[in-house]
Design a protein around this nucleic acid. Sequence first.
RNA 1: GCGCCAGUAGCUCAGCUGGAUAGAGCAGUAGCCUUCUAAGCUAUUGGUCGGGGGUUCGAAUCCUCCCUGGCGCGCCA
Length: 569
Amino acid sequence: MILDRLNKKLVEVVKNKAAEKSVEISEEILNQIYFEINDEESHGDYSTSCALKLAKTFSMNPREVAESLVEHLTLPSIKSLAVEGAGFINVYLTSNEKSLLLKEIVKLDSEWGKNEKNKGKILIEFVSSNPTGPLHVGHGRGAILGMALSNLLENSGYKVTKEYYVNDAGRQISILISSILVKAYIKNFNIDGMYEGSYIHELAQEFSKDHGKVDIALKSEELSDDKEKALDQISEYFQTNHANEWEAAKNFSVANILDTIKQELHSFDIVHDNWFHESSLGSIQDSDSDLSKSLSAIEKAGHTFSRDDAIWFRTTEFKDDKDRVLLRENGEPTYYLTDVGYHKNKIDRDYDLCINIFGADHHGYITRLTAAFDVMKSKEQEIEFMLYQLVNLYEDGNKRAMSTRKGEFYSLEELRKELGPDVIKFFFLEKKSDHPMDFDINLAKDESKNNPYFYSQYAHVRCCSILTKKNFDPDIQVDDKEIEKNFDIVNKLLNFPHFLERYTDERSPHSLVHYVKDLSAAFHTFYEQNPVINDEEKIENSRLLLTLATRVVLANSFRILNVKPLEKM
RNA sequence: GCGCCAGUAGCUCAGCUGGAUAGAGCAGUAGCCUUCUAAGCUAUUGGUCGGGGGUUCGAAUCCUCCCUGGCGCGCCA
């Protein structure tokens, strides 16, 4: 890549200069010796401010430093170099170099933008919503983010495993099963806190069809006034008196709801490689289970203590505000311990990096999970978190009301049926994830340039439409002037791999969306001002080259964003 | 009270590992269709980057204090 060559050369020249002057350049400054990509033609294709940073070390003024570096910065692809402003060095590439690079893009096609620089194994966990109901819009944001980030990471060489953690044990699941059994067998019985909604009704109906009549002796009058206690009493009742039905209902409902979730994710082209069940972590009684292994790992490291008959993890040693219980007074593991056990399992599967995508309301969890991870991990393993905030739906300028009378969030399925999956993906990815988002439904439905999704797709469609009429011919000469005329578009296309690298390192898929919008805008401008199909063969072929390269880059970007590029509209 | 995230144009947001005049879209204003889809393009109006200090050649970007908003602070999951 041209930028890599430039940077290598620059560092070499700077080091020579330092040797000549017998001065030492600090590591910190050395890391700042590089060229940046310009988005404005006035400063050339690339520029560096390294002369300003080196001024002190070299005890010269910045412009002098720049001048002395420029003398030695010669490469065949460079047309000219200039020292401008306070001491910036600007590089102008030859237009012939640009033409050659564009031809390279076209040749590489879907490979353009990929790199193999990174070798690590990454586990990325996302969605992981409880199998107690359908996905809501907020889950959708996490799902879409996770998928795009996975694609970005894979694109730059990482080996990525996408995983969904299924909370198929614990109290919420018990309440779900109770809710279904109650709905199936008892009339007019309702406790605050039980799951509701049409899906519960349907599951109950289907379950009772398969399992015939069951006599239930449970009476609401006998339950505690405390609704939380009452919920547990119901679970207990079923588990002792109707153990078979309980087991059956559990398997049936979890499988069913999980299936619904999986289908919804599939309609967004989101596919996990692995569905990890909480129940597979085993029990604390089994010393070979992940649960037990994780607990003893922390104990062995000397970070636990006993208090009130519970076992605690001294997480305050890891900047947590309070210590955390791992094993409860009653001998049962806390939710925290199961999560620690899950992460022990991830560690043992030998990933270099574990990325967790969490709803921002779970951010309080980061410190304690990191603490456990750091205690249990081996060598250079790392953990990283990405948070996503709420999505507010707006329509006609008003916030759209919550979906159900229970104040639940809008379901993802409803939104998808209203808008289609791809526009939702594009909109969700456009905003930084760790920021609450206002989603404008009217805008998402709009089919004009106001809607960035359509605007970007339309650029791709225009490329395709031209290319069906005539295609770029590599055997016909290209007019370098035509290439040079279109700085914006060429600059974006040539540096695509660098941009992707940055977005990967920054974990910022939203930047890729902005890139796509910018490239689309540059292409629309080009389209209006440069009729591609043309009598001048060389000019036509040059414009076809630009069109084809744009189509390649837009398609590759859409692929990473997990959005299907349209060829016709 | 403590912690995390944020406050940039009328609106929705980029820019934040410090760099050359703070960007885009919408909304506003003025233009462009016998020509590859006008589902588009061009020009233009609009900002003491929440406020005060500091660090330096240089701060929207780093540090610090304050103000405002969102979220979180269970032997729940």
